[in-house]
Each structure stands twice: as structure tokens, then as C-alpha cells.
């Protein structure tokens, strides 16, 4: 079975995010990109499905940080590493990335394409459904449990409140993973370093990116931050009333 894991690199939220001078995007000078967490789970799910006859290819957009992501994937057990090149200096939206994946996908002809159900910087939808729409493949997202038998996948799709829908999907298909069946494994630094020496990254040029389908922004900004809580005072009654009011305002009750 051939599994392709398509990953996205997203801004690391640990660092302070700054808006670029133009005011319509993020300042990429100090931005560090990391592997989107649901994509880590997608890779983990692929590794869990792997047996002797399975090949896993990980495809990443050609940002600087992609190398480390790919070598780490190899250290965890991925078989083939592909780095999409050209056109990735600035950010790219999901529509563009989906189109950029078309070539390598038709080359690999995977039985299963796994990707994270969403990334935290998705503004124009998520990669999985877009890719499925583009390639005319079935798609199920928010999957937290996956097994494959004879050309079909059985996926556990999560809804809110803990409800799960078990779906059967004919392969080939695209599946959006929210959580792998086991937490993403740890890989020792020494192993990754070994991969840097021994594994190969295959560059795959994709030419110009086509972001059509996304919408240009007029403005990007940070919400006002609150340094300290607004303190509510008074008698217990007064405080209780005010708190319940707050909850009502937020449509919680």
C-alpha cells in the first residue's frame, strides 16, 4: 500500500507573532515555522498503519524548516522524502499548496493520502478537503482512528460531544486526521542526525503557485491583550449576579 502524507508548515505560536509592516500579513523575519500538529498525528497514523508492504512518502512545502521536518519523519520511519521547491519564499495558502501537490500525487498514485484535519493558520479552508476536491477523491475529516482492509478504509470520525461516526471509505481517498491512535512518537536526536547524513530529500519543482480560491486580506492585526483580569467586586450576591451576566453575554448559558 502506498501512503502519502502531505504536511503543512505553520508559524510557531510559542514565539511572539508580529504583523508585517504592510499590515496584511505576518512578519516573517523572525517567524519560525514548525510542522503543524495535526500533520504530526497524520504522520504517526501512517507509521502505525505501516507494514512490510507499505511505503510512506512525506511531502512538505519547500520552506527552510522543511529539511528538519523531513529528516525527522525519516528517523521515525518514513520511506521517501519529497520537498516541493520554488515559490515558497513567502507564505502560501492551502489552495496553492493543494495545487502544488497535484504533480507528485499523480506520480506516486497513493492508495491513501493523510493530512492533518486543519492547521491553525488556515484562512482559506484546510488542505485535506481542497486536495480531495481537486483530485476528485473521497474525503473524511476529523478522523481519530483508522484501519485499512482490502481497498477500503474504516475511519472513526469525531463529532462534538464525543459522538463518533464509523465510516467506510473506498480507496484511494484523502483522510484528515485529528489525532493518531497513539501520540506522536519521540525520536532521538541522534537518529535524526543520522538521517541528515544518510537520507535523501528529493526536490520536486512545482513552478508558480496559484492561490486562487483564497481571499486577499485588507488587514491583519492582533486582538487587544488583557494584562490583568477585570476584577468584580461587591457582596457575594452582587458578584454572583455579575458573573452570570458575563456568562449570558457570551451566550454560554
Amino acid at each position: 500500500m502506498k501512503i502519502m502524507v502531505a504536511v503543512k508548515l505553520v508559524p510557531d505560536l510559542v514565539e511572539n507573532l508580529e504583523i508585517a509592516p504592510g499590515g496584511t500579513g505576518l512578519d516573517r523575519t523572525y517567524l519560525r515555522l514548525i510542522l503543524s500538529e495535526p500533520d504530526e498525528h497524520a504522520l504517526e497514523q501512517a507509521l502505525l498503519l505501516k507494514d512490510e508492504s507499505t511505503d510512506i512518502t512525506v511531502v512538505a512545502p519547500g520552506f527552510e524548516e522543511a529539511d528538519d521536518v523531513l529528516f525527522t519523519a525519516a528517523a521515525k520511519g518514513a520511506d521517501r522524502l519529497v520537498k516541493l521547491t520554488d515559490g515558497f519564499q513567502e507564505g502560501c495558502n492551502c489552495h496553492a499548496l493543494a495545487r502544488a501537490l497535484r504533480g507528485i500525487t499523480s506520480e506516486i498514485q497513493p492508495d491513501l493520502i493523510l493530512t492533518g484535519v486543519q492547521a491553525h493558520d488556515d484562512l482559506d479552508g484546510s488542505l485535506g478537503p481542497l486536495l480531495a476536491g481537486l483530485l476528485n477523491l473521497p474525503y473524511v475529516g476529523n478522523v481519530a482512528g483508522l484501519s485499512i482492509t482490502e481497498g477500503k478504509a474504516t475511519a472513526r470520525k469525531e463529532y462534538s460531544g464525543g459522538l463518533i461516526g464509523e465510516m467506510e471509505i473506498g480507496l484511494p481517498a484523502v483522510i484528515g486526521i485529528v489525532a493518531a491512535e497513539a501520540p506522536p512518537r519521540y525520536v532521538a536526536v541522534s537518529k535524526v542526525r543520522q538521517m541528515v547524513k544518510s537520507a535523501t530529500l528529493e526536490p520536486y519543482p512545482v513552478g508558480d503557485l496559484d492561490p486562487g480560491g483564497g481571499i486577499e486580506l485588507d488587514r491583519m492585526y492582533k486582538p487587544e491583550s488583557v494584562e490583568r483580569a477585570t476584577m468584580i467586586e461587591g457582596t457575594a450576591e452582587e458578584i454572583a449576579v455579575r458573573l452570570i451576566e458575563v456568562l449570558k453575554e457570551l451566550d454560554v448559558l
Binding site: A188, V189, S190, K191, R193
Partner: peptide, 8 residues
């Protein structure tokens, strides 16, 4: 147990 990391 992470000697590789220590070296880095």
C-alpha cells in the same frame, strides 16, 4: 537518555 540532544 538523550545523549544526541545533549551534544547538540
Amino acid at each position: 537518555g538523550e545523549h544526541g540532544l545533549f551534544e547538540v
